[in-house]
């Protein structure tokens, strides 16, 4: 398989997200060469249980993204609930409480769109299980700028709407069953760039 020269991975996930992420993030190798940035739709005042849980299960460092923080490999960043997460040109995060998009804050589209401004054709976007259409526009923009898209095979999704919508809206590079995605990423992402 041809490896992808990837500088960052963005993941969008909604209903059923916690279980889906447990099948992917802990599988990633300790020397995984790209930072992983995740928007998961959560209740506005939800606690950090998911982050602690994933961190405990993973060799990578799983944490909540903080504004102005430098984005670097070895980390899995999760958007804080009730804030949009954006990527700045200097590869740091910024936050916003502006209007919900697709009824969502954080919005997957906003993360995907701003990350693709920065990483352009070196960005990989992944759309997982979810009950709305957030992420479809962002996935399209990532593709337009030369980045790659992976979508979870809707047959393996707890909620099919989000992956189906992403597939309908763009032409994904790969459609994979949930349990294959982690291993695939370990092989697909070029480690030479680290």
């Amino acid at each position: 398989m041809r490896k992808f020269d990837c500088k960052a991975i963005v993941i969008g996930v909604s209903a059923g997200g916690m279980l889906a992420l447990r099948k992917i993030i802990p599988v990633l190798s300790a020397d995984f060469p790209a930072p992983v940035i995740i928007v998961q739709h959560m209740h506005p005042y939800s606690d950090n249980f998911m982050i602690h849980d994933l961190d405990r299960k993973s060799t990578l460092n799983v944490r909540q993204a903080e504004e102005k923080e430098n984005i670097s490999a070895g980390n899995v960043y999760i958007a804080p609930s009730n804030y949009h997460l954006l990527v700045e040109q200097d590869k740091t995060f910024s936050l916003s409480v502006c209007e919900r998009l697709n009824f969502s804050r954080p919005s997957i589209d906003i993360l995907f769109e701003t990350a693709s401004e920065v990483y352009q054709d070196k960005l990989l976007g992944i759309v997982l299980t979810g009950a709305n259409k957030d992420g479809s526009e962002g996935a399209k923009i990532i593709k337009q700028r030369g980045g790659k898209i992976i979508v979870q095979d809707p047959k393996t999704a707890e909620s099919k709407v989000m992956p189906q919508s992403a597939i309908a809206n763009t032409n994904p590079d790969h459609i994979l069953p949930l349990t294959d995605i982690g291993d695939f990423l370990n092989k697909y992402i070029n480690k030479r760039n680290k």
Partner: peptide
């Protein structure tokens, strides 16, 4: 101002 948000707007 942080640029990403301003640019989107």
């Amino acid at each position: 101002y942080s640029r990403a948000s301003i640019k989107r707007r």
